[in-house]
């Protein structure tokens, strides 16, 4: 079995969100980069769990990013995975990124392609779905549990208004969320091993971006909190009804 895990680099969750160059560029100054939590905690760890059950499984990691993505790819390799592929390009447009990953996916004929449910920076939640369309594969989105039985995956997923369990034949694209696996911390052995794992760098294929970012804005801050006396909840109810008009 071959598994491909899509890994994205995102700013740390506590990073200051600011913009430069006339609000057209994310200000990377002083930003710590992490593996997108959904990719790391759920997609990657689930792949590792599958390999623990079936040691013959091969896990490849793929990221579309410039050289500064290498530390997070090494960290991902320290958690697990056999080799990594970095497609040497910026990743500004989801379609462009999906096209790059699809090329790798096609060549590697993977049985399962895992993504996180979304990235915590652009929150587009699109790569998995786009990959499924480009590769003409089924997609199970927002998966929170997965069991393999031969060529069939039994997956639990979130849908509007509930959850359901479905069966799908491999190959398949699966986007992962909470419940799928538990976050792990890389151990010393993993970190040492990661140093010698192959990290291939490939040049991107020709693909055109379908969107471009024109500018960023920061939402206007709240004007300040109005404190209400804890002994006077009638007043809070009045404010919510008459001033905020929300109840």
């Amino acid at each position: 079995m071959k598994i491909l895990v899509c890994i994205s680099k995102t700013p740390d969750t506590t990073a200051k969100i600011a913009f430069t160059e006339g609000n057209t560029k994310f200000d990377e100054n002083g930003v710590q980069w992490i593996i997108n939590p959904f990719d790391e905690w759920y997609a990657l760890v689930k792949a590792i769990e599958l390999k623990e059950k079936d040691p013959s499984a091969i896990i490849h990691l793929v990221t579309v990013g410039t050289a500064d993505a290498e530390p997070i790819i090494r960290k991902a390799l320290a958690l697990g995975g056999d080799e990594a592929i970095r497609i040497n390009s910026n990743s500004n447009d989801s379609f462009y990124v999906a096209k790059q990953i699809a090329t790798i996916a096609k060549e590697g004929s993977y049985d399962i392609i895992f993504t996180g449910k979304e990235t915590i920076d652009y929150n587009s939640a699109s790569i998995g779905s786009m990959l499924s369309a480009i590769l003409d594969l089924p997609l199970v989105s927002l998966a929170n549990q997965l069991d393999l039985n031969g060529n069939t995956a039994t997956v639990r997923r979130e849908i509007e208004g509930g959850e359901e369990t479905c069966e799908v034949n491999l190959p398949v694209v699966i986007s992962c969320q909470k419940g799928m696996a538990e976050q792990r911390i890389p151990n010393m052995r993993g970190i040492m091993a990661a140093r010698s794992k192959p990290l291939k760098v490939l040049e991107p294929i020709e693909a055109s971006a379908t969107t471009s970012i024109k500018k960023f804005d920061i939402p206007v801050a709240k004007s300040g909190v109005k404190l209400v006396d804890p002994a006077n909840m009638d007043e809070l109810v009045r404010l919510l009804k008459e001033e905020a008009k929300v109840i």
Partner: peptide, 16 residues
Amino acid sequence: TKTVFSGKAFASIQIE
């Protein structure tokens, strides 16, 4: 315009 950085900012995106 879309929300990005989990609601901490907005981005104006041109569809080409």
